[in-house]
């Protein structure tokens, strides 16, 4: 599949601070592409350049084959944007905002349908200033989709939402993608990126650290598998530390905590079973994207220093 967004060697500085050092990305049509990184990593600046509302100092960007800065009109028609800082007039009502925004585009989406699918129908006559954080966020997503865009850029879309509203928003994003819209999602929530994204770019200090699938990132980080259990009978630690897959055994009261490579779990249960010890209350902790993120950014930082 062809790339719908192509960013090459993007560089942007504000006075003395470099926001984006060197970012290159390519986003495939139809995917949910995550941009993940700590605060101040340059995520927002990158997507603002992609949206064409910030001029990069160096580098080239094409979105749906056009330069979003030079070809403003076409870019605004094809790219829907939900900004971290963009708002609406306090006294504008939900339905008015949607009707107004769809009047800006040559081939708008049906805004009533958008309003329904985003669960805002009951708020049609409510003023923007009176909406809750989650409702504002949903309206903001609806407005980003008002022009039937091919690409939607969503910046920090669930920041400040309660867990339920966050989950609702996630299923919403999946529905949007199902309509064939390519989504660029900026986030600093690992859980969000893991749940939604097909591929993720890790950005740190203005550079792309790596681009991979969520599973690929966790595997690449090579973080150990960890599990804990209560044995049915006493046994010597050497039984486990002698296994090649196991790197560490710890005891916390009657709880045994084991860390090791893939396959450690089956090796441990097998050897214990041979000695007549049953494994009870087993808990396996999966390596999370968060662990992967920390491991990958730290190893890159070490290489550079």
């Amino acid at each position: 599949m062809a790339a719908i967004i192509e960013v090459r060697n993007l560089h942007k500085r504000y006075r003395d601070t470099v926001a984006v050092e060197d970012v290159s990305l390519s986003v495939q049509a139809g995917e949910i592409f995550g941009i993940l990184g700590p605060n101040g990593a340059g995520k927002s600046t990158t997507v603002e350049c992609i949206a064409g509302i910030r001029a990069p100092d160096r580098g080239s960007i094409t979105v749906t084959g056009i330069d979003p800065l030079r070809d403003r009109r076409a870019a605004t028609e094809r790219v829907g944007v939900q900004l971290q800082s963009g708002q609406l007039p306090e006294r504008l009502q939900v339905a008015e905002a949607l009707a107004l925004y769809s009047s800006f585009y040559p081939e708008p989406a049906d805004w009533r349908e958008l309003m329904d699918s985003l669960g805002l129908a009951g708020k049609a006559k409510t003023r923007y200033g009176k909406l809750s954080g989650g409702q504002k966020q949903r309206l903001s997503i609806a407005l980003a989709l008002a022009g039937n865009p091919r690409v939607a850029i969503l910046d920090e879309l669930t920041t400040g939402l309660d867990p339920q509203a966050r989950r609702d928003t996630w299923s919403l994003i999946e529905n949007v993608r199902a309509r064939g819209v390519t989504i660029v999602l900026v986030t600093h929530f690992m859980e969000e990126a893991e749940r939604l994204c097909d591929r993720i770019a890790l950005i740190d200090a203005g550079r792309v650290v790596t681009v991979d699938t969520p599973a690929g990132l966790t595997a690449r980080a090579g973080v150990e598998q960890r599990f804990e259990f209560r044995p049915s009978a006493a046994f010597a630690d050497e039984l486990l530390t002698g296994l090649p897959e196991v790197s560490r055994v710890e005891r916390r009261g009657d709880l045994v905590v084991v860390a090791g490579a893939d396959g450690a779990l089956s090796a441990v249960t097998t050897v214990l079973a041979q000695h007549g010890v049953a494994v009870r209350q087993l808990r396996v902790s999966q390596t999370s994207l968060e662990d992967a993120f920390v491991t990958i950014t730290q190893s890159v930082a070490k290489e550079q220093s």
């Binding site: 403003r72 605004t76 306090e90």
Partner: peptide
């Protein structure tokens, strides 16, 4: 409008 980002939001639409 400038303070709350209304104008900024409009920058991303064909209207400006």
């Amino acid at each position: 409008y400038r303070e709350t980002g209304v104008l900024r939001r409009m920058q991303t639409t064909p209207v400006g």
